[in-house]
């Protein structure tokens, strides 16, 4: 599928990345790309391999096969130069506990080509985070806010956020996304984030990837997902799943009382329920429901 005009190179591209820890396979042949200007959300259950992938993207882990490219360069080999344009908010706060936010900002300012010191202070003020308290004594939410402020300060082209709202209270979460959206509005930063917070991401992400047992189950635009996933509800019959439903690529089928619910992934607007000869209820799904259908227990199509 070639377009007449060359689209700009994706800011992140993984090529068949495989990661193994001893006998355990954390990632298997993961190939995804994050186009410039997009917000990519990687979803997956705990242990699906998200953290491993983020480590590969940050050049902390060398894939057994394949490679991870950030801004067009192999991140393992050129980590220090590539990260000059990348802001990172890690899952676990890893700043030295003894350093204050001010000291952290000062330290980081020397590493990047651009640094908005005013912006950092303004953000911390907005967040209500004191600049002279040691990092270790801040609350979890405050730590995340400091991390975000530090990540945004070098005006990066790419933001990598590893479960940034994990463990944050609703207000902190809201504040976090406010800040992120504000930055997106101002600078059209490309964002790659892993998250469990599907409801928050629903509005912000424009591409979704779902990782399961180290494999990329799905990598698509959110709009597409919304368009093609539907829940079909029909009465239970001995015939099982009607052929017409089966043609829509069901991903999860479950019995609910007297009816059967099938989540299909290939729904077509033009499909008409009267082909089945019985009444079918069609409903659309939230991102969370899509996710659960794909990685939950009732997947595979058993009744």
């Amino acid at each position: 599928m070639t377009s007449p005009t060359a689209s700009p190179a994706p800011l992140i591209q993984t090529e068949d990345v495989t990661v193994r820890y001893g006998r355990r396979t954390a990632l298997e042949g993961v190939s995804l790309s994050v186009p410039a200007g997009s917000v990519y959300a990687l979803l997956g259950r705990n242990g699906a391999g998200k953290s491993s992938l983020v480590r590969c993207l940050l050049g902390e882990q060398r894939p057994k096969t394949g490679r991870a490219l950030l801004l067009g360069k192999d991140i393992w080999k050129q980590r220090a130069s590539v990260l000059r344009e990348v802001g990172v908010v890690p899952e676990e706060p890893d700043a030295p506990p003894a350093m204050t936010a001010r000291q952290l900002a000062h330290f980081c300012s020397r590493l990047y080509p651009r640094w908005d010191a005013e912006g950092v202070s303004a953000r911390l003020r907005r967040f209500g985070v004191p600049e002279d308290v040691p990092f270790g004594r801040l609350s979890k939410g405050q730590k995340g806010q400091v991390a975000l402020a530090l990540a945004l300060a070098p005006s990066p082209r790419l933001l990598i956020l590893d479960d940034p709202t994990l463990g944050l209270d609703p207000l902190a979460r809201r504040t976090f996304f406010d800040e992120l959206i504000g930055d997106l509005a101002d600078r059209r930063t490309t964002v790659f984030m892993t998250t469990h917070d599907l409801t928050a991401v629903e509005g912000i992400a424009d591409r979704i990837g779902i990782l399961q047992d180290g494999r990329l189950l799905l990598d698509d635009e959110l709009e597409n997902l919304k368009r093609r996933f539907r829940r079909l509800s029909f009465p239970k019959t001995e015939a099982g799943v009607p052929a017409a439903v089966a043609a829509l690529a069901p991903v999860a089928v479950a019995a609910r009382g007297w009816s059967v619910e099938a989540v299909v992934s290939d729904y077509d607007e033009a499909w008409l329920p009267h082909e089945t000869g019985s009444r079918v209820e069609i409903s659309s799904l939230t991102l969370e429901e899509i996710f659960l259908a794909l990685v939950g227990e009732a997947k595979g199509g058993t009744v």
Partner: peptide
């Protein structure tokens, strides 16, 4: 830092391993 998983603080920033 390595054991307490804080070395990533440096590695997620543009400073080289040898540095």
């Amino acid at each position: 830092d390595l054991a307490e998983r804080r070395l990533s603080f440096y590695f997620s920033r543009p400073v080289s391993g040898p540095a």
